[in-house]
Design a protein around this nucleic acid. Structure first.
Length: 234
DNA sequence: CCTTCACGCATTGCGCGTAA
DNA sequence: TTACGCGCAATGCGTGAAGG
């Protein structure tokens, strides 16, 4: 795989949004244009927002409408460095930098790249009370320029890895609940069973590591049957 | 003149302490 | 125990300065 590094500024016309005046009700009341704030940049894809603005707000403020596929990154505030890909057309406030989709970089590849350099981006931020990543800093960030097919291949690998991370997170949460359930089984009031867990074989619940299961089952006082949340760890 | 940057202020929500 | 007030942190907003 051969590639060269290219500055984001030469690939994208990076812009920020704007905040229509809060004093003008006409900008917000009955608005139907999604308006993104940095706090909305939580997940990979963004389809749900807190606030909407009107067409008038769009016309009379520096808020701009960005198309589906635009990658947004928070430039300051506690959410600095957070990214999302728009899965709807939406406007943003001034704290979001926007990379409109083009034919050289696919949004998912840019998203993963920005996430991979998040810590570096934060360290580049300047300012005291509220550190700032400016658009000029973003323009100077270099990204490996791969062919679209290579980008797609990388994205599919990274998607799989992300799925794995999500699954692992779900497993950890499930195992945390399992901890509670074991204590409830051993010391709690079973009749009350406040969470409505069912009684199942431990081996039925935990499929991830057969040795771990046998270790737990063979560990003296541990019960083979446990009260468990209605999920399976696999 | 318009856009962007960067700073500081305003607002909101949460946690903690205290008094009733 | 509950309600209230205070302080702090997080986040959004406004605005003056700078530069193209």
């Amino acid at each position: 795989m051969s590639f060269r590094y290219v500055k984001l500024g030469s690939l994208f016309n990076i812009t920020s949004g704007g905040t229509p005046s809060r004093k003008n009700k006409d900008y917000y009341e009955n608005g139907d244009i999604p308006w993104v704030k940095t706090g909305d940049l939580k997940n990979m894809y963004l389809s749900d927002v807190d606030e909407y603005i009107t067409q008038q707000a769009l016309n009379e403020s520096s808020a701009k409408l960005f198309p589906k596929g635009t990658v947004l990154i928070a430039m300051y505030g506690a959410t600095i460095g957070n990214c999302s890909i728009l899965s709807i057309d939406a406007a943003t406030n001034q704290a979001c930098a926007a990379f409109k989709p083009n034919n050289k970089i696919i949004p998912e590849f840019l998203y993963y790249y920005l996430m991979s350099i998040k810590e570096r981006l934060i360290s580049l931020a300047v300012g005291g009370a509220q550190p700032n990543i400016s658009i000029s800093i973003l323009k100077n960030i270099e990204i490996p320029l791969l062919t679209i097919n290579e980008q797609k291949r990388m994205v599919s690998i990274l998607n799989k890895s992300r799925e794995l991370i999500d699954k692992r997170k779900a497993q950890i949460e499930a195992l945390d609940e399992l901890t509670q359930s074991v204590f409830l089984e051993m010391f709690g009031d079973l009749k009350s069973n406040p969470k409505g867990w069912k009684k199942v074989q431990l081996s039925e619940l935990v499929q991830v590591d057969a040795n771990l299961v046998s270790d737990i089952e063979n560990y003296g006082s541990s019960p083979k049957d446990v009260l468990a949340p209605a999920i399976k760890v696999c």
